[in-house]
Amino acid sequence: MEKLQYALFTGCTAKESTPEQLMSTYAVAEKLGIELVELSEASCCGASHLQDYDDFLSLVLNARNICYAESRGMTMVTICNTCQLNTAMTKHRLDKDPALKARVNEKLAEVGLEYKGTSEITHFLYAIIDDFGLDKIAEMVVKPLSQFNIAPFYGCHNIRPSELQNESHKKAENPYNPTSLDDLIIACGGVNVDYEEKNKCCGFHVELQAPKTASILTGNALMGAMDNNADWMVTPCPLCHLKLDTQYEHASHAVGRDVKMPVLHMQQMVGLALGCTPDELGLQHHVAEIDFL
């Protein structure tokens, strides 16, 4: 097989509050022989808030980010569900609306860029499942996670709106019964935990303006995993991770019981199964300590 190559859009969180996510992405890519070329020119995607303030500006900035994947002739790979949503949504809107695309390109021309629509956009989770292949990952596992019950937490923006996100998936994900992350847990030798909150919202986006709502949603997710005997949780989204990992005290207070639980990034889980060291995966950067190794 030809070596897989992607233009990596890291997003902001991986560069700031979840450094372990970027470390583990590179560690896993190296194990799998995937080449990631970082889009160092990329700006913030606006995290689904900038468009509330200025929708057009959000489109222009996201289109600019995609331009740099296009100029490298690569598929853009994201490692944050919200980056995935905002970027894929921009592509979707520009590709179906030539007038809007022209307006955006008029601005991009000022800096010598043009959005063409030639690059696909996919989350790293789907890149390794669809393009690399679950079977091949399973074959490469050297430390099967067989002693762990692992609760997948999908994160809204990878699975909804399904019509948009399934444009980039080989196998359509059912937002009411997603399976990709469960399949990945099984490929890593782990036991996948089924629970009601696995495809629900963590509350991240209203943490500042509606902290009670946010904490209850986070608490519900952690409780669901806990009540179904999970040893730890795994998520493809660094924003969900921030909520579940760093905000467990607020969540515990909101739902009236201790819901502290280790939460891994999906890259860290794969990395553990492939034999990466805890240091390579940045496991020391978690607030809810990783106490099971």
């Binding site: 509050s17 990329a42 913030c44 606006g46 808030h49």
Partner: peptide, 18 residues
């Protein structure tokens, strides 16, 4: 301010200053 703050940050750093 949470929505507007993104524009300020992007203008200053490109990335979001969390």
């Amino acid at each position: 301010r949470h929505a507007v703050g993104f524009a300020h940050s992007i203008k200053k750093h490109g990335l979001l200053d969390e």
